[in-house]
Amino acid sequence: MSLDRRKLLKTVAAAGAAAAVSGGTSEARVRGTIPPDALGLMYDTTKCIGCKSCVVACREANFKKPDRTNAPGGIWDTPMDLNGQTKNVIKLYKSADGQERSYFKAQCMHCADPACVNACMIGALQKREHGIVTYVPALCSGCRYCQMACPFNIPKFEWTSLAPLMVKCELCAHRAKGAALAVDTDGFTRYPKGNGSACAEVCPRRAVISGKRDELLAEAKRRIAANPDRYRGYREGDPPRVFGEHDAGGTQVLYLSHVPLEKLGLPDVGTEAVPETQQTIQQGIYKGFIGPIALYGLLGLAVFRARRSQKEEGPDGGGDA
């Protein structure tokens, strides 16, 4: 379902015409799903050593310049978070007493039903082949609704650019270049080295692995079953679970953690897809408008009646200006 400018203009014109004719009942939203051939990543905090090879590899694979802003003299690449030139970053969680530590790899979660895709008014963000949430720069108007909509705070805007675009992980889809997916030696289906996700390819401890989402989910569950004491749930005391299995309606990037998942900054979004929630809220707001409209109607009526009764009393009534 690729969309180019021509098609976009046609669509807009057609939609405008349809709206004018029909009087505005919009079509129901198409719910996004995880396709059977969905690709994804699985990140296991117990394996990550914080070497940041993935940060460097991601930059090189995506032709992004290092972020020197936080380094004195610009001698280091120090992104403080995902930003206009950083699609992947390793952060550190440290408990107040410093005893509990965990690295955390942040990048796009590739949701089943992405809020960014739903928020984008012209389809610059699309869920495409293998469920990868893809960005089409030619269509982007720079409104940054996607940035507001994303519950994981992933899409970032190139604030420093004169022709700014959105920046987010696209699972290195541009590197595939028609290469065929094949089962690798470790049993996961992925592109040959050099064509797949750069972060997973470069990881020295395989803390982040790429593969088909169902394979990764099975592996994550196997790890939890093999070491139930090692992994944690969302909050302290919760049974261990895979983040992303059902969160936000399911994501193609999965997390396993040895600290409570909430400590890693993962939001408690529930199992419903975020666009569904957004739609409920929006419709709720419109439903709620009935109350105020009725109230203002009554007030208006009261004012109208009062004025009329004043006029009947005589023109001198409202003299002082």
């Binding site: 610009g74 690449d77 952060k91 550190l92």
Partner: peptide, 19 residues
Amino acid sequence: DTVDIERPTPPDTYPPIRA
């Protein structure tokens, strides 16, 4: 005189989970 670092890499520090 110091030279520019052509391809800087991350230092031995980490950003926190929340900036």
